[in-house]
Simulated scan of single mutants.
Amino acid sequence: MSRLRARFSRNSMARDLTDDRGDVPGWVLITLMTAGLVIVIWALAGPALEGVFQQAIDRVSGF
């Protein structure tokens, strides 16, 4: 009985190690969290970046 259990355990571990499906819910969560961070950072830094860009354009256009 213990040999059968050990063999089943090894096969189960080998199957888990060779499974290529990955952790889909985990990747979905990471993707959503990354998108949320990008939106928050863009909302906070957008006006400042727009000001820097406008200053650069004004300096180049001033010549």
Rank of each mutant, 00 (worst) to 15 (best):
L4I: 07
T31H: 02
N11P: 00
D23A: 11
D16E: 13
T31C: 08
P25G: 10
Q55L: 13
W27M: 11
P25Y: 01
G62S: 15
I57H: 05
I30W: 07
G26I: 00
M1Y: 03
P25W: 05
D23W: 06
L44Y: 10
F53N: 05
I57P: 00
G22N: 03
L17S: 13
F53I: 00
P25H: 06
R5F: 07
T18H: 13
G22C: 01
V38D: 01
V60K: 05
L4K: 03
I30V: 09
S9Q: 15
V40K: 00
D58C: 06
S9N: 14
R10M: 12
M1C: 00
S61D: 14
G62K: 08
G51L: 04
V24L: 07
I41C: 09
R15C: 03
P25F: 06
A35M: 09
L29K: 12
F8L: 07
A43M: 08
A48R: 05
I57A: 11
R15L: 12
D23M: 07
A56I: 14
G26A: 10
D20L: 11
M33T: 15
T34I: 11
N11E: 14
P25N: 11
T18L: 15
S2A: 14
L29Q: 08
P25C: 09
R21D: 09
A43R: 07
N11T: 12
R5P: 02
L4D: 06
F53V: 03
A6G: 05
L4E: 10
S9I: 08
A14L: 14
A48Q: 09
D19Q: 08
L49G: 11
F63Q: 06
S61V: 02
W42T: 00
G26V: 02
L49C: 11
N11H: 12
V40P: 02
V28A: 09
V60F: 08
Q54P: 04
L4F: 06
A43H: 06
S61G: 12
